[in-house]
Design a binder for these strands. Structure first.
Lengths: 342, 342
DNA sequence: ATGAAAGCGCTAACAG
DNA sequence: CTGTTAGCGCTTTCAT
């Protein structure tokens, strides 16, 4: 038998100690802690006194073990630095804490083995659900493991690899359409897209939305005006630099991500152009700096909150399927009518 | 007695099931899982086969409960958006996972009640240690709770409220001294400080280091050249705008935080000044954009890694006391000799 | 309203 | 080497 070490007073007090101090049974002590079942007032008081005297705090793990419930949810994101993911984390964390859940975050940088390792930890900790931003890399075997374990997977941002999976997706197509139409409405005809990587639905859908808006206005998509197939500011900068050098340069640039917009911003300034006098700039999604920059940049707002809300609903209602997050544009100083030309 | 529900095959397989399938005792199964004690080759093989057949994964919580160990560490930061904290999170997470630990992150935004709530969760989950960036708000009662629970507290960034506490601190004074001396060495005499809030050791020490460097060069600190007592880019922008308007404006600006530098950068551009031709700019710490901006901005580098390393050492060696992280400057294009003047 | 006791899934004595 | 067994701290049935 395990050597039951002498009850260490330094160690965390247990329910048994509380019960002893209060002079009641463990069961009664438990009942006042959980608060569910009726306990006589005087005993309740004695137990509560013992609790605060000892500084008792229930052991969440023992509790879950016995209750056979799993109050852990995982979040897998490529990067916590990304404002969208940071927002989702913040809000998810807040909401889940409210329900007594624990959120385990993993930064996977899109690497498959990191995702594998993260999933392993989550399984070992009996996660009930896992929220995944980096859908692309989540290999089928992992998905299978999740299913086998009855762990709900909720994808967001990118559309999931499996058609029937639960997903909270931003309306990328609609967003691009919205922003591009805004630019067209302002009078722009040469609108460039700094597109982002086209290996996931995010990039592809934004590109499609952009093209659709153009088509609706009667123009074709000029391949010369689409560049920047990555997600870093350096990619954005180089793409914009190239875009500004072509024969018939754009009067507006739409960036598919704040980092891309940051790069474009630098390129525009290097070129000595004025925003929005010479060129307009609009970006997907929100980021602190988009507001602080001069002029503040038009973008698609309120996203993190909406995504997080969608995830919470999905989590709570056991909903399965696709949730589309509607998008709204925050029109700011960086977009205006194009300069008049010859 | 609890109604042992019929063994649900959908649910996570237990060691007992593994043992049954392998035709061995549950103890033997446990032994091959933990891998510690000798087990005969054939039995080992049978168990391993059963494990992969069932897809068995040990339940971390039951394990910890039985082992009476606590493999959870908490991290409390004001904001995950801050590159320093994001770095610390990333590295801590990686290192701790390696040791089988779980990292629970909390964004407290410096609010005392958020810190209180976070600590509560950590206590309930039997955290072994908690790493705290927002030292200022961690009220004494919480500290007391931690001590009582024998939870190690490791502070970083700000110096802790309690003198004897364990702390991994950046050498803020030395860093400011280093950067300011660099600027002085370049020939600058009018060096401004965008200081950050002076209600914590971080801001105060950086200010002191700046003054010390000035004093060493034989100049006094001109109060007119110190502004920006907050941590947002907006504060930095306003401070720098003011600084550039005074009668005898600075030829160099030292920002106490990347956000402050971002604001200063905007102000400088608004003023139409060239970096580093008209004015030099240096910043505390690293941030992606500091590298991508044109010109890249001189700053203090490698910080997150160093802090995280210090924390890990502290965690592993049970070290108590103060660890100072040495700082190194990354000299980049944003600092050069001041313009020649009349 | 209360207490005794049976385990949740696991590890580690202890005795073969 | 292997099996038996006593709990880790907690909740909950069952019987008072």
């Amino acid at each position: 038998m395990p050597r039951g070490r002498p009850p260490d007073e330094r160690s965390a007090p247990t329910l048994e100690q509380v019960a002893r101090v209060a002079g009641v049974s463990i069961a009664t002590a438990s009942r006042v802690v959980t608060g569910a079942v009726p306990v006589s007032p005087d005993r309740r008081a004695r137990v509560q006194q013992a609790i605060s005297l000892l500084g008792y705090v229930p052991d969440e793990r023992a509790r879950d073990l016995r209750r056979r419930v799993h109050k852990t949810v995982g979040l897998l994101v490529p990067s916590l630095g990304d404002p969208l993911h940071a927002d989702v984390f913040r809000i998810l964390h807040r909401e889940l804490s409210r329900d007594g859940f624990t959120l385990l975050v993993f930064e996977t940088t899109g690497k498959a083995d990191a995702e594998k390792a993260s999933m392993d930890v989550l399984v070992r900790n009996h996660a009930r659900a896992v929220v995944v931003a980096a859908a692309a890399g989540l290999a089928p075997p992992i998905l299978q493991l999740l299913r086998r374990r009855d762990i709900r997977a909720i994808f967001y941002n990118d559309r999931p690899p499996q058609p029937a999976a639960t997903c909270v997706c931003v309306d990328d197509h609609g967003g691009a359409l919205l922003l591009t139409s805004h630019l067209i409405g302002l009078g722009h005809r040469r609108i460039a897209l700094v597109a982002g990587a086209l290996d996931g639905s995010t990039g592809v859908d934004r590109h499609a939305g952009y093209s659709a808006a153009l088509a609706a206005a009667g123009s074709a998509t000029d391949p010369q005006l689409v560049a920047g197939f990555g997600w870093t500011s350096e990619v954005g900068r180089q793409a914009a630099t190239g875009l500004l050098r072509i024969a018939d340069p754009p009067t507006a640039i739409l960036a598919a991500h704040p980092s891309l917009a940051a790069g474009a911003l630098i390129a525009i300034r290097e070129r000595g152009l004025d925003i929005p006098g010479d060129i307009s700039l609009a970006s997907f999604f929100e980021s602190d700096y988009l507001r602080f920059v001069d002029p503040p940049i038009t973008c698609l707002g309120g996203l993190g909150a909406a995504v997080a809300a969608g995830i919470m609903t999905t989590l709570r209602t056991e909903h399965t399927g696709l949730v589309e997050i509607p998008l709204a544009a925050s029109i700011r100083g960086s977009t205006a009518a194009p300069p008049v030309r010859a």
